[in-house]
Design a binder for these strands. Sequence first.
DNA 1: GATGGAGATGTAATCGATTACATAGATGAG
DNA 2: CTCATCTATGTAATCGATTACATCTCCATC
Lengths: 332, 332
Amino acid sequence: MASIKDVAKRANVSTATVSRVLRNAGNVTEETRQRVLEAIEELNYQPNVLGRYLRRMETETVLVVVPDITNPFFSKVLRGIEAVALEHGYQVLLGDTQNDARLEEQYLNVLPQRQVDGMIFLTARIRKELMEEMARQFPIVLACEYLEGTDIPTVSIDNISSARKATEHLIRLGHRRIAHLSGPMNIILSRDRLRGYYQALAQHDIDADPALVQEGDFTYESGYNVTLKLLALEEPPTAIFAANDEMAIGAIKAVRHRGGRVPDDVAVVGFDDIQMASIFEPSLTTIAQPMFEIGQKAMELLLQLIEGGNVGRRQFVLPDRLVVRDSCGGSA
Amino acid sequence: MASIKDVAKRANVSTATVSRVLRNAGNVTEETRQRVLEAIEELNYQPNVLGRYLRRMETETVLVVVPDITNPFFSKVLRGIEAVALEHGYQVLLGDTQNDARLEEQYLNVLPQRQVDGMIFLTARIRKELMEEMARQFPIVLACEYLEGTDIPTVSIDNISSARKATEHLIRLGHRRIAHLSGPMNIILSRDRLRGYYQALAQHDIDADPALVQEGDFTYESGYNVTLKLLALEEPPTAIFAANDEMAIGAIKAVRHRGGRVPDDVAVVGFDDIQMASIFEPSLTTIAQPMFEIGQKAMELLLQLIEGGNVGRRQFVLPDRLVVRDSCGGSA
DNA sequence: GATGGAGATGTAATCGATTACATAGATGAG
DNA sequence: CTCATCTATGTAATCGATTACATCTCCATC
């Protein structure tokens, strides 16, 4: 592999001049510039970025840590991130933690090791202190998930109010026995959605029945299995609010396998509005998150942090909205 | 940020010794080892990997280039790659090209720049010569998609024979007017599946009707739109073979929106066996690819290349199988 | 007690680029 | 003509780790 020295030798200049040509820093005559470019061409030279990284101590690369690459929700957020990054000449790399907090911590180490200039976490399952200590020294932004009582810049929706909105929709349709398929309780997002669910019940004087709250793990399978349990109750629910669309689809399938109909026998509401929510039959009533915008905003914040600016207000709450479709019936 | 020199100073040893402790290379007394470890602890030292990378000229990182991170098929392949990589201490980074060949070429440059030790392409849409030239100098493996007449190591299924199998299944069910929703024709995979379709027709003396072959782009929307065109034909097809599951689902939705039933009026077969294929109703008859295994095999090959070994046979064709479900009817 | 070998540690070169600083040559003002 | 200024280019330090090689100590062996 040719290095900058080889190019310098061939063009009969110093490495400094080659570097200047490479980075388009002025003060090079057109004539030498041409000579250098020729040498680069002839040697098929590609600058070794490791050298540059080491010297400049920056990589113009950001890492996005995703809890589950399989989840379509995150891919949309990612697209928002990519759009902004590309615009600003940053590379985006992806780390998949496969829902493993240990792997998440490992990715965190990439920062002090200087492999990337900043990180966006679409998951926040590691110890808060660890994350905060890192965030004090390096550019970190949280999106979607967040940490309680921290001032790490965060972009998300208001999960409590949107869960309340979803539950209230079911209440307005006349349901009183409403179940909730929650996400894992160690994730704050799940706890928020559960809280919103409880708030809605309380505001309408409906007693919360602990048997109607079941914990899933955001997968289709868990939605299916947990719903089977709910249906086996003496007094099964007439409506289900699932903490994401995949579990909601699992719930619908379970109802059907037990011979029930959706929405007639059981109404279902999901969360996220992934593509499949509108394709699946019955189409899902769900909370639409502005996934692309969340990604954009997160990347914009990260860029500000990297460039040393302050980000001012540190928590950004984007608007969500309830999308009413077929899975919860008309105005019963 | 503390560097190895700071640690050396604090522990009263040379940087060489610190490095030896860090990398667990022997020849260090337990006593000095402890001293060094203490210093590391006290300074909260994290080695800057850029220095190491530059010196060793390797990053123990591989890059996987994906045409579309949104596509669930690829996420499964990715999991296979991750599993093997993790086992061997390699980091996996992801590059999303968003189906843009220009972006794909950009990622290719990451190799001579030494940012990663090797790459796996789950897409192959750039100029063959370019790819081959790079593959001659650096470890590259292709998976899923491939390039014709090249000896870059490749892992995939036999798309021609599996497409033939899928089409034959429809023929056996009595269909004669079978349409094909193909992928983009600039992708060899699409051309292969089309070829398999033609072969099956020919073997059963069915004339191929050009009007029945329509090009999509692997998205749900394209499957939907193109099927509407097919249904508007004077003599519409009684069966549709789609080049992937998402287009197949689009096709089913289109048939329904036109008042038809699947499989009664139109039988549909997909390709890939993504999770939704078994969840969607009617469940999809489809070609199941061993996604996880494709990923595993690809990563294993890449490791061999990185470690300088030869990979022997360069084209690996893994077995696929036809999964019969509800979308194409019983034994009519 | 000289010799040799093994083990522990240090010294300094090295990876490839960037860049602060130095220098040489050209240009212009007085 | 001289000096200041500016431009183009070169020299060499630098980023942080790794590692070839040198050195030193200690101990065993004859």
